[in-house]
Amino acid sequence: MAESGVTGVPEGCPGICTEQAGKASPCQGCPNQASCASGQTQGPDPAVEQIKERLDGVRYKVLVLSGKGGVGKSTLTAQLAFGIASDESKQVAVLDIDICGPSMPRILGLDGEQVHQSGSGWSPVYSEDGIALMSTAFLLSSAADAVIWRGPKKNGLIKQFLRDVDWGETDYLNVDTPPGTSDEHLSTVQLLSAAKIDGAVVVTTPQEAALQDVRKEVDFCRKLKLPVIGVVENMSVFVCPKCKNESQIFPPTSGGAEKMCHDMGLDLLGKVPLDPRIARCCDEGRPFLTEVPDSPACTAYRAIVQRVQRFCEVKLEEPKAMD
């Protein structure tokens, strides 16, 4: 792990914003114990304002969320980035806050790259298509390195990513998140509270086992007053490449994303069929959208990209039209 400001966090740190800050047993001997115990850390985090300034040149910020793992958050984040960046006038950036399981570098074809430091902060790594990416994977010395960190340390790194990365003038910053509703998500939303997140895209697969977790994520968005742009149903149907018949591999036993959207008053942005070529493109770091442009999955992705862009760009001009 590259040396950074978060390496000195003691094992078992209760978190600087908690009531236990500075008072718990792991705080003994921590250089920050006195300032934590004094309660001055309880106030608004000065980083929130710093982040707002840092992200001044970023027009739209989109979060990609799902309560469930492995539903295709990173794949969707990548397709969103590729899709928006296909318009050459648009600059797109991706921030991978899945600290324990960063997959964006591989999907964007940037495996094994390293981050560079410049006078204006950390420089993101740029893909062939000009997409800027920042990920923990760039800070690891080997691909097998595990980031065995507890919450407070993960939060410290996310703060650094948001505050210290020099994104430059950027149209879209897409944030890829880990599964769940915990440290990474809370920190990101809180740290971006002044910089404002435009909305979240929630990703699911059709089966109830995924939907039940995704409903929790929607509850999370509502609790934190984060606008939900809409829901994407991934892995909807599978079309056999040989006989062209459709199969439902993850059967929508409870009505799939469509019913959930209806029940919860959300927009369904699209359904993406299972296509083995998507997995292959992700593994090899190639853009699926240009690789197999005429496939049904591509058509679905393109429509989703358009709807996300419309949500962000129209909202600014005529806020009333979004009711």
Binding site: T18, G151, K154, T181, S182, L186, Q212, K216, D219, F220
Partner: peptide, 14 residues
């Protein structure tokens, strides 16, 4: 409520 999100940070989960 089964759709309630557990919005907890690490120490509470631990």
């Amino acid at each position: 409520n089964k759709d309630d999100a557990i919005v907890w940070r690490g120490p509470k989960k631990t």
